[in-house]
């Protein structure tokens, strides 16, 4: 096994079941990824659409030798959403916890803490490890140095850093897709399905800034942190996370695999990523402890 493992995070966007099936079929067959997260994490109202697709997707991924992780909702509210979390937590597969709601059902069995769960320091990480966390992917606003410091203090767990994709910046009780279409969340008409990578939010001066995805706000810019492998391994960070977009994710995965194996240097990796059909420009400020929007160093 390679020193640095690759994770494909959950799809944040409201993709149709057909799109999800096509996407994961290609990931299963072609992407050099070790672990794949599946499941809806942003909006419980989307679950009736995607739920029927997951069994086939999981079967296909596992047949291709991928480790499948079941991701759970980040902001559960309704009885149905809470029940779905409890049900997923009984699964023998690894589960990703994105809200404390899942902890009572999963405590004592292995889980991943996702970037929506506030694990900011070694004491919180240790607490999660005692409850069963085996992989910890901290909030995206933490720097590599901070994640590395946690990893150094908690060698018994694997630490993961979010390296690629629009950054998940906020969740709300309010649906912005509904609001922008003059609707309310409770009768939203699923307008978020029109924006497969999220809907760009620009300032009054046309600066690219944010993106909305239902109740979620993301960065407009695309995180494209391309560390040299030693920057990760020297800090005990052993896993990197790619977040799905409509661009060629197999190419993204191949680029990061080559970077992690030392076959591609960071500049070359960034160049390859910049040539893809991405929704915006590349940033990596958070990884360096700076504002998240700061551009990734140009080639």
């Amino acid at each position: 096994m390679s020193a640095i493992a690759l994770t494909l995070g959950p799809v944040f966007f409201h993709w149709s079941p057909d799109r999800l099936l096509d996407f994961y079929r290609r990931i299963a067959d072609e992407a050099p990824i070790d672990r794949v997260h599946v499941g809806e994490v942003i909006c419980g109202k989307r679950m009736p659409f995607s739920d029927p697709a997951w069994p086939e997707i999981i079967e296909r991924l596992e047949r291709a030798g991928k480790e499948v992780v079941l991701s759970t909702l980040a902001a559960p509210a309704t009885v149905r959403e809470r029940r779905s979390i409890a049900d997923l937590c009984t699964d023998e597969r690894l589960v990703e916890i994105n809200d404390v709601t899942a902890l009572p059902s999963r405590s004592g069995k292995p889980f991943v803490t996702g970037p929506f769960l506030n694990v900011y320091n070694e004491a919180a990480a240790r607490f999660m490890i005692q409850h069963g966390a085996t992989t910890i992917c901290p909030p995206v606003e933490l720097s590599l140095a901070a994640v590395g410091a946690m990893a150094g203090a908690c060698p018994e767990a694997e630490f993961e850093i979010f390296v690629f994709g629009r950054l998940p910046l906020a969740l709300s009780g309010r649906c912005y897709h509904a609001r922008i279409h003059g609707l309310h969340k409770d009768s939203c008409q699923f307008t978020c399905e029109q924006d497969l990578d999220g809907l760009a939010v620009d300032t009054l001066d046309d600066q690219q800034f944010l993106a909305i995805n239902g109740v979620q706000t993301l960065s407009n810019q695309v995180q494209a942190f391309c560390p040299a492998p030693a920057d990760l391994t020297s800090r005990g960070v052993r896993r990197i996370r790619l977040s799905p977009h409509t661009c060629d994710m197999v190419e993204v995965a191949k680029t990061y695999r080559a970077l992690a194996d030392g076959r591609e240097d960071p500049k070359a990796a960034r160049f390859i990523l910049s040539c893809l059909d991405l929704p915006s420009t590349l940033v990596d400020g958070y990884a360096h402890g700076k504002p998240g929007w700061l551009p990734a160093p140009s080639i």
Partner: peptide, 10 residues
Amino acid sequence: RCYLSSYATG
């Protein structure tokens, strides 16, 4: 669960 401020300002 909101990082908008650090995204813009650090």
